[in-house]
């Protein structure tokens, strides 16, 4: 029997933001059982639920837009799945929506292209610099090199191409960054590079980061938009939220 792909959108906030990505996956494997969803399994001696997560969320980050695709054999309604999962969940992991995906949809992980973030400074850890003055110059740069520390030493990374949008409203940054497997960059790296330009170091654990949403490229969904523009611009219109794909209708 062919199952249907269902995309679950959830939020993660409060104390459970300290739960790592692998443990969130394990959490959902169990939550789906508690909720009694009719999920499909792989074969073999240790069958696994058919489940894919979009993009791992770092420990300590909150999110308003996390995604997981699962395969179900049957489903009463999308709303029912949301209610059952919420009843089986814990405070701080809140299911927002469930949508049935068209059969040809790329899986959540493979299709990730960008992610948006809201970033604030923790109390007492804001920089001296005037960010509003620093930012235009930062964004106008040709290259934004950042030294990434890896297990084998350090690596130079150019962040420039991966910063799709960045603004500051006096209290918080709003960011749209490359989150693809090839070019993923982290909000902390961008803020660190920004402050470095003003000759300042980011304090330890200074940022409060919320991932707002995760996006795929509109062209990949068959919803073309305006071809030609996208490669050069990488603007918000070129991306579509993973949560906008799919329908609430069940077709078997």
């Amino acid at each position: 029997m062919n199952g249907m792909k269902v995309r679950i959108k959830f939020r993660k906030y409060g104390p459970v933001r300290f739960i790592g990505h692998l443990d969130v996956m394990r959490f959902f494997q169990k939550a789906i059982r508690r909720a009694g969803l009719d999920i499909a399994y792989t074969g073999g001696f240790s069958p696994h639920q058919i489940m894919t997560f979009a993009a791992p969320l770092g420990v300590g980050l909150e999110s308003n837009g996390e995604y997981m695709d699962i395969e179900l054999h049957s489903l009463d309604s999308c709303q029912d799945a949301v209610e059952r999962l919420n009843a089986a969940s814990v405070k701080g992991i809140e299911i927002v929506s469930a949508k049935v995906l068209p059969d040809n949809t790329a899986n959540a992980m493979a299709s990730v292209a960008a992610a948006s973030y809201t970033v604030r400074f923790r109390e007492g850890r804001a920089p001296e610099a005037d960010i509003a003055r620093l930012l235009p110059e930062f964004l106008a740069r040709e290259t934004i090199f950042y030294t990434k520390e890896t297990k084998k030493g350090t690596r130079e990374l150019d962040l420039k191409a991966g910063i799709y949008e960045m603004s500051w409203d006096g209290r918080a940054f709003s960011l749209l960054l490359d989150a693809s497997s090839a070019g993923n960059i982290k909000p902390g790296q961008v803020i660190e590079a920004l402050l470095e330009q003003g000759g300042e170091k980011l304090q330890d654990n200074a940022l409060l980061i919320t991932r707002e949403d995760v996006y795929t490229r509109r062209e990949l969904t068959g919803d073309g938009g305006a071809p030609g523009d996208r490669r050069s611009e990488n603007s918000r219109e070129d991306f579509i939220s993973l949560g906008e794909i799919g329908t609430l209708e069940i077709h078997l």
Partner: peptide, 19 residues
């Protein structure tokens, strides 16, 4: 504090909230 939880191994050991 968040500072401690971000520094230690497996902060999940100490936050409760389990099902």
């Amino acid at each position: 504090s968040d500072d401690i939880l971000m520094k230690i191994e497996k902060p999940e050991r100490y936050i409760g909230h389990e099902v």
